[in-house]
Design a protein around this nucleic acid. Structure first.
Lengths: 194, 194
DNA sequence: AATCCGGCCTAACGCTTGTTAGGTCAGGGT
DNA sequence: ACCCTGACCTAACAAGCGTTAGGCCGGATT
């Protein structure tokens, strides 16, 4: 764990992200994180952070912000509804593939946040997912989709896309672009009328 | 936690299943399980079980067996390949909807098994998933599918189907049959040529 | 009447956890 | 020369963990 330009704090966050992804939040102790940083005791970390849950919280919130930022880029473009949905899908899975650690927190580990933060996270995530539902709503309105139920269609789309975090590996056979395109194409086909 | 015909041991397994689903395995203590059984201390459980991990293991293995049994029924029927795949999908999501607790262990919590058991679980699960890949292989051979990559198609299908465990609720708007059919239909559409 | 046994209680164990406190040490600014 | 600051070490803490041991009790068995 050596690095040049990033602050020590960021290095800790990165180590935590990786461990939270591979072991899970609860199975990762402060001593594990310290180990990965080549420090000799969990106590050393507390010069840089306030506590374990703060790490989880920061990773979770930054993950949401990354998803939203990627979505903003797509929404700014002038595209027909279905093409916009396709691009939104591609952006979404691209964020996951680029940030597997953050994605693990975003999808799974966030539930170990304290009550207050967990509720705020859920609210922000719901707001993000609502943007997908809006795009899907447009597709149903224009009678392009085979699925009449807006909510079901949204859950189907996001569920199918999010599954990628469980099997995608950066050193895999297919390039990130290939995976993103294949994924968006397949899920969109599942939505469209035949 | 009162019941008539089931053994005390099965009641404990049921309580554990529910807690593993809602809190996660690591966040569930033996004292939590005892609480749910209205016992006044974690020690009381050890008259019935050998240890916490044994509970996880039993739930995981029974989940696999349930998936396989459902699949056997489908394979025994004489159906054209694509219809067989559709029925396999329906059976798969039906098991998930009927056993949300076991599904949580099957998909997420199994990784907290010890090394040996974890490897055996992974092997059995891979064997199960291989059956889906065989059905998909047939569809690609007969030139019915738009996705040429067999492995990707399998991951797409299972990923999309499995996502259901994250949002399906037994008291939801749609009936289990409606959900299963919609799900299979959508995912299959994503696979087929247009 | 004596025995057994399943079911539960309570207390305790050794261990790991997140976190705190106090000390050391090097490097830079004044 | 002095001090400050960031980074780290070590030891300790209180709490929670999985698990064990020993005892109690009611009902069935012999």
């Amino acid at each position: 764990m050596s690095n040049g330009s990033t602050t020590r704090r960021d290095q800790i966050r990165l180590a935590a992200e990786e461990l939270f992804r591979t072991r899970g939040y609860l199975a990762t102790s402060m001593r594990h994180i310290a180990d990965k940083m080549e420090l000799s005791g969990g106590g050393s970390l507390y010069a840089h952070i306030h506590g374990k849950e703060d790490l989880l919280w920061e990773i979770a919130i930054d993950a949401i912000d990354t998803f939203i930022a990627a979505q903003d880029v797509v929404w700014a473009r002038d595209l027909p509804p279905i093409e916009k949905l396709r691009e939104a899908m591609i952006a979404h899975v691209s964020v996951i593939m680029n940030q597997l650690g953050a994605a693990a927190v975003y999808f799974d580990e966030w539930r170990h946040l304290g009550d207050e933060r967990r509720q705020e996270f859920a609210a922000r995530r719901d707001a993000y997912e609502q943007r997908f539902q809006a795009l899907i709503h447009a597709g149903i309105e224009s009678d392009d989709f085979a699925i009449p139920d807006e909510r079901f269609a949204t859950l189907y789309v996001l569920g199918a896309l999010n599954a990628i975090r469980r099997w995608y590996r950066p050193d895999g056979r297919l390039s990130p672009d290939e995976v993103a395109n294949l994924m968006a194409e397949s899920v969109l086909n599942g939505l469209l009328k035949r």
